[in-house]
Amino acid sequence: MSNELFKKAADAICDANVDKAEELAQTALDEGIDPLEMIEKGFTAGINEVGRLFDRGELFLPQLMGCAEAMKQGTAVLQEVAAEQGGDEAEAIKIVLGTVQGDVHDIGKGIVASILEANGIQVFDLGTDVPIEDFIAKAKEVDADIIGTSALLTTTMGENEELLSTLEEENLRDEFKVMVGGGPVTKRFAEKIGADGYAENANEAVTIIREIVG
């Protein structure tokens, strides 16, 4: 019975059906299913499929937004109950996201923001051409877990190193994980500068974020 419900929940996300997602969330609660299990095996399975289809060019940004909304509303019903039951367990990971200073590329970063939000990660999107001090100030303000940067130019990749140095200088390096991405950025570059994570695409970013925040 639970498996059938999980499947329906996943389908509701893929179909961007907000009403159905909310209804199924309530059904799960009524049937005594653990809300976190419903999120993981139902809604998250659905949004993972959405991410996979987007990555292959089989689903497009407007549809993705609809799926993300269904995810958001469906999980909200469950998280409210999960928070009552288990306190901190349902608290979302917070990431401050932006394209580094000198770089105005927005599309890829915007897609990453959408996929992260769809996966229940709280995103504070600072936009493009973001100075290092703004990343840090926002991360401190919202008590972020991660600072995520995007750089689409070889000439702006260096901002990532600057960010890490500034965090070190201000004794904040242990406060925030730093994750980097963007066209010319690679895993090797991320390792070389001492970043905590790198992702090839938005889908992978979700996995890596969960790994590094643990």
Binding site: F60, L61, I107
Partner: peptide, 9 residues
């Protein structure tokens, strides 16, 4: 390699 769907239709 594939055309990103930003509009969709």
């Amino acid at each position: 390699e594939f055309v990103l769907g930003m509009h969709g239709e």
